[in-house]
Write a protein that binds this DNA or RNA. Structure first.
Lengths: 132, 132
DNA sequence: GATTAATGCAACAGCATTTGTTACAATTTG
DNA sequence: CAAATTGTAACAAATGCTGTTGCATTAATC
């Protein structure tokens, strides 16, 4: 796999859950279907649980389930739950002393913010029930 | 530095060139100002030369110069010259056998393509002369 | 209660990508 | 010829993501 496989894994799993909502799935089942490792599945789906999109149950006959109506879960919810930063965050900014650098940063930040908002808006127009 | 520093380095350098277009700059000068290595500068600016935005001259008193009117160089030109793929390209697609995966890929690809186009459109609204 | 099956989590290995560095050939000026 | 500069290849270092192992915890079942 490569970058952004978290979003793919998350949406792929949710897509299947929509088709058969009553079935409880173990990390091992999901991992086998997605061609990855159960721990990776727990890592990714754990984010979705924190965001209230999934629930998990420990112990025998435990596993993963949708936490709410799939019509209320949009692709944007999943994207935001994963905290993906497709764009440069600029977390390592060192207070640019150079005026050009400063002006540049303002311009680019504004564009990136707008484009990110556009992305989220587009993603929010599709629910996971629409994936079929 | 970190990821996407190529775009920053490129725009930062172009921004300074606009302010003093007659000055020829060596990779060493540029690298010292940007806090990086001359070879890195050549790597990045080389892309801009291939795209026709800069020229370089070898030998003593050689260096880098703008290749055209800065009013004609937009941020989108620079972004595209660097071949940055902010979005998932999906080059490693393995012909998804799973129907859910397939439907998902179509949806996401469409959104990503639209958002990428939006990004380029926004970037094309600013020239490097506007950075000040 | 013991066993079994599952999540949660930490730690680390492996791999890919990006950046930084060194070295050297080729080119241009003086 | 000497000095300065780009071009490029090769490699080291750092970073981030994925995969893996191990183990504690929890819940169902016998």
């Amino acid at each position: 796999m490569k970058r952004n496989s978290r979003l793919s894994l998350a949406l792929h799993t949710l897509g299947h859950m929509v088709l058969d909502p009553d079935r409880v799935r173990t990390s091992a089942d999901i991992a086998a279907h997605a061609g990855t490792n159960p721990v990776v599945v727990r890592r990714v789906l754990g984010r979705l649980r924190e965001a209230g999109l999934l629930t998990s149950e420990k112990g025998a006959s435990g596993g993963w389930r949708l936490a709410c109506n799939p019509n209320n879960i949009t692709l944007a919810d999943v994207y935001l739950a994963l905290d993906e930063c497709i764009f440069v965050t600029g977390k390592d900014e060192h207070a640019p002393a150079c005026a050009v650098e400063h002006a540049l940063h303002r311009r680019i930040s504004r564009v990136m913010t707008e484009v990110e908002q556009n992305l989220v808006k587009r993603l929010s127009e599709t629910t996971i029930s629409d994936i079929r």
